[in-house]
Design a protein around this nucleic acid. Structure first.
Lengths: 145, 145
DNA sequence: TGCTTCTCTGGAATGATTCCAGTCTTCGCG
DNA sequence: CGCGAAGACTGGAATCATTCCAGAGAAGCA
């Protein structure tokens, strides 16, 4: 809709610094997630298409993977819901997921850097991350029920 | 293979006590998970077929859902892996998942009953469960790498 | 034993994600 | 500024786990 080219200088730098090529899809993916944290791939596809006019589903999935591998994005996969992506990376934070609508919100980790928790008996596993997912009801779904 | 009918008295009682009908598929599902904790639906289907001779995929999925709803089973869904089921229910325990092979092991909760952890700022969500997944490498995959 | 209700069967469908082969871009280099 | 090789993007088909559906079949209360 808008004909004003968006300012993508921040995203360009992020990509370059990560040693990645700067492409339209990657910029649009980063910008989309900057505006709507915790979006699904599907939502990102729509946002990217709104910005670029067109883009294939694969291009978005590819970008999502590449950016996740480069630690520019983090993937969150709540049980029973499609994967969500967020730009908040590099810190150790967790998530609350609504059992009603699947809404996701960030929860700061009160403990510290990963793994913020350590299992008592890890059965010989070497643990590097403790992922905490809080389940409950968001305000809107609480009201509706 | 074995022609000796298995002793299913424990499972029968579990089902009756939960107000559920006793069926061959349900008994076989419970027995399969008694022998191999953290199995996937696919693995359970094979185990059930080995015991009963035949069974539809849906019958197993139906049983898995029914038993999970009745709190006779618990479902574990590690990101990027198909769902796993376990018979250890009623306590609050967590899991370690191997990044290499997907193996799952139980980890006792050092804190207490659910929700063993509470978020600092839950953004208005009412939280009832904290699900902790530890990620790492199992002994076998550590050796192999 | 009879009946009602719930379960199981088989097959098709769904949603999220991935694979593939070919075409088009990006960007280091001359 | 223009070339070329490595890396992205396209469209379409395929995969995997899981669910939906309608009809045939069992469980168990009366």
């Amino acid at each position: 809709m808008s004909t004003t080219p968006a300012d993508t200088s921040t995203e360009r730098r992020l990509l370059r610094d990560a040693g990645l090529r700067v492409t339209g899809v990657r910029l649009a993916v980063l910008r989309a997630l900057g505006e709507h944290q915790h979006s699904t791939a599907d939502t990102v596809v729509r946002a990217v298409r709104a910005e670029l006019g067109s883009a294939s589903v694969q291009a978005v999935y590819d970008s999502l993977h590449t950016l996740t591998d480069a630690d520019l994005l983090r993937r969150v996969e709540p049980a029973g819901h499609p994967a969500r992506y967020e730009r908040r990376v590099g810190d150790n934070h967790h998530h609350v997921v609504c059992r009603g609508c699947g809404a996701v919100a960030d929860v700061d980790c009160a403990v510290g850097p990963a793994p913020c928790l350590v299992p008592g008996d890890a059965h010989g596993f070497s643990v590097d991350l403790a992922e905490v997912t809080f389940w409950g009801m968001c305000p809107a779904c609480t009201d509706a029920s």
